[in-house]
Design a protein around this nucleic acid. Structure first.
Length: 288
DNA sequence: TTCAATGTTTAGAC
DNA sequence: GGTCTAAACATTGA
């Protein structure tokens, strides 16, 4: 999916325009995406007002006046699209397939009609899901998911990060960074980018990392996430009127998707390999 | 035709 | 028990 920066981008977009909208209709064309009986979803959301849109890890959280929170995971190919009655479209998540011009389309699996616009939950690969959690129990529920700290939060200190790494000494670096119980929200793109920032190869064992390297990884995670949010993510489209621009992080990626191309730091050829089943990119010259 | 794609979970091997 | 890989989910496009 969209990783933390892409989810944060769409959450900010939605939070700016959606609160206050009253839900008037719910249409589900792919029931398996909704992890509860559709009639129950209807009862929980129809007639309620959207209060607040926020995020934890890669989850989009939409608080409703009914006391329920919609919990949406976009996984690999989910999108959220807000089409307001007036004003510009807000699109977040996976890039829109070429040729797609309107909504709903064949990937629009959940459509929530509201007083000021319509929210589309689209997902090409159908991996995403939508759940419902009582807002009063949301904090508790999130704790049960055992997410690690938010990498950009004030309480994510270097000391905490070093401590988390100590619990995974025998594991390889990149899968550990992507472990949502270690740090929340890190995915395949930004794990590679953080490793490059820290000049460390993704396949290194945690135990082999020097204190200096661990601290560089901490800085790398924070830097890469903040930069990606600043540029509105790597591929989330954010439409302005009809033509729109896309998430602008792509030109700032130093290794992801750049196999065979020269390293922007040292000129070495970026290697693309596989680690933990995921495409993994690094510079063999300046990452050790 | 084959493979890989911003995620997560699970089964099985060692 | 710990850690790894492959497969599964489903679809598309290079």
């Amino acid at each position: 999916m969209p990783e933390l920066p892409e989810v944060e981008t769409i959450v900010r977009e939605l939070q700016a325009v959606v609160p206050g909208a009253r839900v008037r209709s719910v249409a589900v064309s792919l029931p398996k995406i909704v992890k509860l009986p559709v009639p129950r979803l209807r009862r929980a959301v129809l007639g309620s007002t959207i209060r607040h849109v926020h995020r934890r890890a890669k989850l989009v959280l939409i608080d409703l006046s009914s006391g329920w929170t919609l919990v949406i995971h976009l996984k690999m190919s989910g999108q959220l699209i807000w089409r307001p009655r007036r004003g510009r479209l807000r699109v977040g998540g996976h890039p829109i397939p070429q040729g797609t011009t309107g909504w709903p389309n064949k990937y629009s699996h959940v459509i929530i009609g509201a007083s000021t616009g319509t929210l589309f939950f689209n997902d090409q690969r159908q991996f995403g899901h939508l759940k419902l959690v009582k807002t009063s129990e949301l904090e508790q529920w999130l704790e049960e998911q055992e997410y690690g700290p938010e990498p950009l939060a004030d309480d994510f200190t270097v000391e905490l990060f070093l401590d988390l790494l100590r619990h995974h000494r025998r594991k390889r670096l990149k899968p550990t960074l992507m472990d949502q119980t270690v740090v929340a929200g890190v995915g395949n793109i930004y794990a590679d980018e953080a490793c490059h920032f820290a000049r460390v190869r993704p396949q290194r064992r945690i135990a082999s990392l020097t204190r200096r390297e661990r601290r560089a990884l901490y800085r790398g995670l924070r830097h890469v996430m903040a930069l990606a949010i600043k540029h509105r993510g790597t591929s989330a489209y954010v439409y302005r009127r009809t033509d729109g621009g896309r998430g602008g992080m792509r030109p700032f990626l130093r290794v992801y998707g750049r196999g065979g191309q020269p390293c922007r730091r040292c000129g070495g050829a970026i290697i693309k390999t596989t680690l933990a089943g995921r495409g993994t990119h690094y510079c063999p010259n300046c990452q050790d």
